[in-house]
Write a protein that binds this DNA or RNA. Structure first.
Lengths: 141, 141
DNA sequence: GAAAAATTTGAATTTAATATAATTTTTAAA
DNA sequence: TTTAAAAATTATATTAAATTCAAATTTTTC
């Protein structure tokens, strides 16, 4: 996200703090994550401001809403086309920038106009593998 | 889902009604959808029974929980490996049974053990295209 | 500098999910 | 067949995330 791209959105201190947080990490945070992080620096900030800002950025196409977690939305400020690698244990999400050619055969179109695709790779991340390993040592459940 | 597969789950009338509903449609319903449909025939049935049953079927691997909608879980009783085609307007979901070869290059592994993948195709379904068309005729917003 | 517009805040509301305790049903043993 | 234990269902309560809204504040425009 480039500042010039948000020229038509009023750059309030709260919004800049939210954008800065979104850009400074790769965790694909939830609205609550954003609120927690930003309200440390802006103790008076309201949850509604976080929601409003995320919604506004989404409208402008500067932020992508992910429905990877059931129960809560997560946000990705990298709007370049890319895929995801998701840990099935801790739900950590990594970006995948390899491009895949995915041609859907005509007979699977179901009458749709197709506009895009997205691949989720599933697996177990390094951290969770280590935890799992030590769990097994201690307690073979 | 085959009845023999649920041999180790007690087959109560409520559960059978839920399973029958899940198998009789292709809409990938939410828990609320299931409750609404099944409680027409079982007016006394509680929401908790729907949740418990869905959870139990999920545990047994007879049902897949989809996180395609933000805000609510949706369920797919077709446990064969397959992908999805999703309408970005109405969130209707169609199944895609084409198999794609998706080799993630080593340098994108991020230390994961990879166990699977899933492709979502996005587009606009027939119904929504028609609505959009007639909307444009009536009211060019 | 005043009026209008936009944003932020704090609180309330809604929706989906989950948990719990009491009742009912089923199972299995005597 | 009766009865105790286990399991499932129900109705209700609680929690979590999302959304809405009016009042207060800030910014913009004239």
């Amino acid at each position: 996200m480039i500042l010039s791209e948000i020229a038509d959105i009023k750059q309030t201190p709260q919004r800049l703090a939210i954008i800065e947080y979104l850009e400074s990490n790769k965790v694909h945070p939830s609205a609550l994550d954003v609120y927690k992080a930003v309200s440390e620096r802006f103790p008076t900030m309201s949850f509604a401001t976080v929601y409003n800002t995320l919604e506004k950025l989404k409208e402008k196409g500067l932020l992508i809403e992910l429905s990877i977690d059931t129960g809560k939305k997560r946000f990705d400020c990298d709007t370049r086309p890319h895929h995801h690698l998701i840990c099935v244990k801790c739900r950590e999400i990594f970006d995948v920038f390899t491009d895949f050619i995915l041609e859907l055969p005509e007979d699977e179109f179901h009458g749709f106009d197709i506009i895009g695709n997205h691949v989720d790779f599933y697996g177990i991340c390094k951290k969770c593998k280590e935890i799992e390993g030590s769990d097994l040592e201690l307690n073979k459940d």
